[in-house]
Amino acid sequence: MIKLQNVHKYFFKDEPREVHALNDINLTIEDGEFTLFSGPSGCGKTTLLNAIGALDSIDSGKIFLDDKEIGSLSEHERTAIRLHEMGFVFQAYNLIPVLSVEENIGFIMKLRGFRESEIKQRVLEVSSMLEIDNKLSSLPHALSGGQQQRVAVARAVASKPKIILADEPTANLDSKNSQKLMDMMRELNEKEGVSILFASHDDLIRESVRRIIKLNDGALVDA
């Protein structure tokens, strides 16, 4: 369960160019949700995902992951939560340039100490679902945007984390690939009970999710 209480986040606080990126967010997300944050560009979707993912600090309010309040944890503990409980799909892909596609996808599993054979099998599984299994030995810079995006998704889902935070995972995909991705996500959500939170404008995602949370100017529109 994820719970946000009166969460505020500013950029450039107390400067003329101050941005109130998250404005008094109160929100509860149960385990196993399949949910979309939607809203116009710049409304704070990415900022909210980063806050939930213990990636970014907030200025006031509290965020609980189960019973742990993120703000009270050390950077080391937050890192451990990110590694063991979360999977991130970044809007900017953020692949590791020196690792091949295969190694990128398996990287988190490796860090978490999965067995080599298990990693290999799982990498094959997700990469064939996302149709990047023919690119396994390439380096990221040799891939198209859409292919990189699918690698980023594959990396996030491979280790079957408790929560997946996916920021615009379909932005660079055609509808066929978007559909495949959503099918895989839904299967993960339904079979493995993984909570999945999207931030997106994509209608396909809007139609697939079970709950939509609308944001505008950093505030919830109707929860």
Partner: peptide
Amino acid sequence: GVLRCIGLCN
């Protein structure tokens, strides 16, 4: 930064 985001500690 990416490495640290996805779970590498200091």
